[in-house]
Design a protein around this nucleic acid. Structure first.
Lengths: 336, 336
DNA sequence: CTGTTAGCGCCTTCAA
DNA sequence: TTGAAGGCGCTAACAG
């Protein structure tokens, strides 16, 4: 069914070894004549090497694994697009796995992908302050198999690890400072899960901005969310009860929930409530009042992580760049 | 670095063949004693078969390929999520490729994926009335390699092809009829590319509804779009010039563009303009006026296509189900 | 009951 | 300038 190297060799009347040499551009001692012939015949016969066989012997599969919480989520979809593009441009393809809520599933993908011979793994998991057992298993496995891994937060694990860093602290700071500059003092927060590093860092930035302005931190203004629309809906009544005039939501989806809840309470954004979001997704364009938001570019992060993993694979130096977000000012936050 | 079957065999003091038999549950004649020992040792040594080697000999890679126009696009992201889930539940993993605008890139992925040993390919390409040369190449290659393919429109090609069908005609019909029932007569359309089967089918449904109501078809009410926000923005002024009172956009993104344009013209949806969309995406929840839209469930289509390809791989019967859309009535279209 | 032998398709010495 | 031989890690016949 499939044309093999032997078929080509036979058709040329020479050995498979020579065909292999030529087709892999080993600039060896092969006469131009046979070389040309081999190339022509291979093309005519439509020969392409079986990558399973190639991988088995070379240990190179030109494949990288991408493990994300949810490929259906807009942020990770965008990221995966960028990863794929960058990989393709370097001759790699990508296998994807969504682990959902389950750390075990993530570990299962690690095993499966490594067994399939991926040369590296991009692990787009929002890390918790304390790594779960399964997380550790992932890193240990990768290390023991010599497979490099790229992650997005600087957690201390052994192995061949690359980090594509994002400055969440500055992100939180910028959002908060903007609201403070507009005259707001009671600024509510709808955070992510409290043990998630990226959420903790945003809070750190929030606190920094407050303290710079001499505003005391008030923990009753913090509502622990989970980055969903729903938590925005649920958080608003509580925070209104705390007398806030402005709100910093830790992502745009949550801001969306707040918009919807505000409509229910007959509140106007931004007149009655100023809002700053985080992620700067395309949602901004859609909302009736465009959302002021902190950039968190999935595309950039995807491309960068791909570059990082490719460098690790090639054992090239990769200069760790940490992305510093900026604030996109739109109409959802105004002077108090 | 990696534990091989030989290592396990050696540790057990037996041959690799026996280890293979036991671990693959070939219910052969192996004493319970050695069987138990093998299983234990394999586990202790943390042995997992190299899937490249397995694939090379069995021709089974437990991998399927998914080729989409753009994995960053919400519809395909959702679809791919469903594909992945269904595949995972059946022991398969998925490789993804986004071909963008380029048919050649799609073909390149076909080659690469097949060389990597995928057992089947889901080709989520909106087909044109006339297949491009590259499209044909894709199908021919797959056929010649004995790889089944699943597509989403019934185009006539040879090979092991499965079709997950969607009734776009009914979709177009439902949208149009709804508007007619509300008393509208001059109903504009922002279509997809004119040579795209799924767009042509929607138009067919549109015409059918018109003719049932005795309203003559007026081609000046048709604006050829491309499923983007932008084309919605551009189309509105033209269609307003044609005196429409209602609008059927061939997807929700385009409807979004119309919303934005309407704001610019100080028109109110639905008071000044009724709109029906297509896809029924989560955008509906976000818009200030929830969009009436025809369902086109990415998740369902993804799951179904995965089931279809898995059946083809196993050479099982797959009953071709054609999905009939329904209309989700919300607030964007009202009585004239 | 178990081990030996032979590949899968390819690459890589080493010898000619 | 080329071919033969060996092996990647595994499975599947066929022998014992």
């Amino acid at each position: 069914m499939r044309v093999t190297i032997k078929d080509v060799a036979k058709a040329c009347g020479i050995s498979a070894a020579t065909v292999s040499l030529v087709l892999n551009n080993k600039e060896c001692r092969v006469s131009d004549e046979t070389r040309a012939k081999i190339i022509k015949v291979a093309k005519d016969m439509n020969y392409r090497p079986n990558q399973l066989a190639v991988g088995l012997v070379t240990k190179k599969t030109q494949t990288i694994g991408l493990i994300v919480p949810d490929i259906g989520n807009f942020h990770f979809a965008e990221m995966s697009k960028a990863v794929e593009l960058e990989c393709r441009n370097n001759g790699y393809i990508v296998i994807v796995g969504s682990y959902g809520e389950s750390d075990e599933q993530a570990y299962a993908y690690f095993k499966e992908f490594i067994d399939k011979g991926v040369e590296g793994i991009i692990f787009a998991k929002p890390m918790l302050a304390k790594l779960s057992k399964e997380d550790k298993n992932c890193f240990e496995l990768a290390e023991s198999m010599g497979v490099p891994v790229v992650i997005f937060e600087p957690v201390s694990v052994k192995g061949d690890i690359g980090v594509v860093n994002f400055d969440y602290v500055t992100g939180g700071y910028l959002a908060t400072k903007h609201l403070i500059d507009l005259g707001h003092e009671r600024i509510g927060c709808i955070t992510g899960p409290n043990n998630m590093i990226s959420s903790m860092s945003r809070i750190e930035g929030y606190k920094k901005a407050l303290s710079e302005a001499g505003i005391p931190f008030d923990s009753s203004l913090m509502y622990e969310g989970d980055f969903t629309v729903r938590c925005g809906l649920k958080a608003l009544p509580y925070l209104l009860g705390q007398g806030i005039s402005a709100l910093f939501t830790f992502n745009d989806m949550t801001a969306l929930g707040v918009y919807k809840a505000a409509r229910q309470y007959n509140l106007k954004v931004p007149d009655d409530l100023s809002i700053v979001g985080f992620d700067d997704t395309f949602l901004n364009e859609i909302l009736e009042v465009p959302l002021t938001s902190v950039t968190h570019p999935a595309e950039f992060l995807g491309e960068e992580s791909a570059k990082c993993i490719l460098s690790l694979i090639k054992r090239e130096a990769y200069e760790e760049r940490i992305y510093t977000p900026i604030l996109m000012v739109r109409g959802s936050a105004i002077k108090k």
